[in-house]
Design a protein around this nucleic acid. Structure first.
Lengths: 346, 346
DNA sequence: CTGAAAGCGCTTACAG
DNA sequence: CTGAAAGCGCTTACAG
């Protein structure tokens, strides 16, 4: 028994108020041309009976539910928690509610998002894929409104919103070069599924910047294949320092890695940024509060959420004048370098 | 246009397969007594037409949606992100999907959860209230299945799942006493809405333990009214140390505070745990990875999620043999002390 | 400004 | 094992 099945229907209200169900419907939906007296009588009947509209019936009749699905790997990952928070808020602005699905690492679950078999009573889907990838682009050609996020897939036949990984990483290095650093280590070059695409793109940005500046990147100063977490960063920093090659800066592929790297540096008696400058990526909340505060790249999460919901609404037919034959769009959001103490000092 | 409105209906399938819609329905819902040949013919028709069941129509007919709402303050708070992750997983085990709503600090939004006016096409609600509280218990007497979480409200006329705050905090102090500490500081006694109830309960547990052990609590060693975050903990620890009263232990009301407090202690040249032992509450993932690792209270998040969904399912009529006249239940989950380096060393 | 009627696409007694 | 029919509770042309 669903919430709304209180037993009282519009017909009951209509009978008590002495009007037709059409009139009751008009009152509920705020139809303007109603005699105030009629409206009051209907409202009184609604109140006295404790009537609530059955949203499922309305949905069936209208052919839409106002529900969108957000499919992400795991809420325990702070990046996705924040993404979900933002998407929910953007959806609420458009009177949409969000059904949240975590597929964890599971390939089948991820495929199922694109299949959308059973519980498909949602009007659209926002999907941040991880495993399903570049070699199966045709899977993204679905018949429901779909917007994908992230960097696992490019060129899929559906709308796509993603951050500028390459340019962001390039900006990290350019910033370090600008403050005079030349011996730059790189942390986070992983080949696991969750981070591989970001890692590769960001590494590309790093090498682009180095090449452009004529600074060489020492392969012995590149570390990866640890989780993108504080402990991961701490360990990778240890590994690099143990190699005994002098460095004056570290580029980290996310902030958690950077925070971990900083703790190792400080623990080993090095000063940040005087001895070694550190820069992260993501601009998480902690970055502004840790000591020293952490320089980072803000990838524009708000804009990602806003754009994703906007594109989805267009595909869902909620935006007047949108041409439904518009081909798949690929939107890159704006990033911003946030310089803080870990590179420029106090 | 909802996803499932592909235009093809059961009637179309029935016509193509040369059977009645009842038979199509039987095939879709896995009814067992079907001639294999009939089944195959129907399946072929489904495939060739690309038919998908219209879940909204099914929901209307069945009077349920399989959807539950989870209302929490904000996903950006890691505690609630983890809670949401667990609830979604527990719900999935019972073939339920979760509609996630954030009400932020907004009182009206929180009230609306209990009103459940408009979009009430969910079968039940899990609600972690913050502002709506002890003085409005009657608001929790709703006509839809409702389970509340947390410590804002006790004795409400609906099912309630919560952790043992008092006993958990008592265990924190008992642990410190057991390792010989007597000069114990307390961090996190806030009076903001988000933490006040937890703070008061945990403080009560602390004082209970001190009284029982005959150890006095110096009011000058109690600090609060900072956010329950790392920087908050760092600042409060600074405040306490600045007062110049010697301490040998700190009880922190959550792990973020404890991590912040530890960083201050270490920064000021004190050893953890040799000079000062530190214990947190929540047992977040970081607790096991920070150096020194952080002793903490595991409040049993998995059990909270499991129990909440179980109670809700009972109220939703999904559990055979459940007596619907069962009065409102108050369930306390089990906590566990996790001793780590920050109290017992390596 | 309001009413009577059709229909959204399913599932489910009721027959057979 | 399968069919014909009713009905879940709304909204929406169509009349008036």
């Amino acid at each position: 028994m669903a919430i709304n099945t209180s037993g009282v229907t519009m017909r009951d209200v209509a009978r008590v108020a002495g009007v037709s169900v059409k009139t009751v419907s008009n009152v509920i939906n705020g139809y303007r041309y109603l005699r105030p007296e009629t409206k009051a009588r209907v409202q009184a009947a609604i109140d006295s009976l404790g009537y609530r509209v059955n949203v499922t019936a309305r949905n069936l009749r209208q052919g839409r539910t106002g529900l969108i699905k957000l499919a992400i790997p795991d809420l325990r990952n702070p990046y996705f928690a924040q993404l979900a928070a933002l998407i929910i808020e953007e959806a609420a602005e458009r009177s949409l509610t969000v059904l949240l699905e975590q597929y964890h690492g599971d390939r089948d679950a991820e495929m199922a998002v694109l299949q959308n078999d059973n519980e498909s009573f949602v009007d659209g889907v926002v999907f941040s894929p991880i495993v399903v990838g570049q070699d199966q682009l045709e899977l993204f050609k679905v018949r429901f409104p779909l917007v994908i996020l992230g960097e696992s897939v490019f060129g899929a036949p559906c709308d796509h919103v993603t951050m500028r990984n390459i340019e962001g990483a390039k900006a990290q290095v350019e910033h370090l070069l600008a403050i005079g650093r030349r011996h730059i280590a790189v942390i986070g070059l992983n080949d696991d599924h969750l981070s591989v695409s970001s890692a590769l793109l960001r590494f590309k940005g790093v090498t682009n910047a180095m090449v452009a500046a004529g600074v060489k990147l020492d392969p012995a100063l590149v570390a990866g294949n640890a989780p993108w977490t504080r402990p991961g960063g701490a360990q990778l920093m240890d590994d690099i320092l143990d190699r005994g090659i002098p460095i004056d800066a570290v580029v980290c592929f996310n902030d958690a890695l950077a925070l971990g790297a900083m703790s190792t540096l400080i623990e080993r008696g090095l000063s940040v940024p005087d001895d070694v400058a550190v820069i992260g990526f993501d601009n998480v909340e902690d970055a502004a509060f840790t000591r020293p505060t952490l320089s980072s790249i803000d990838p524009g999460g708000h804009q990602i959420a806003h754009t994703a919901v906007k594109l989805l609404c267009e595909r869902m037919g909620l935006v007047d004048g949108f041409d439904h034959d518009t081909p798949a769009r690929e939107i890159f959001t704006d990033f911003k370098l946030i310089p803080r103490q870990s590179t420029i000092g106090t």
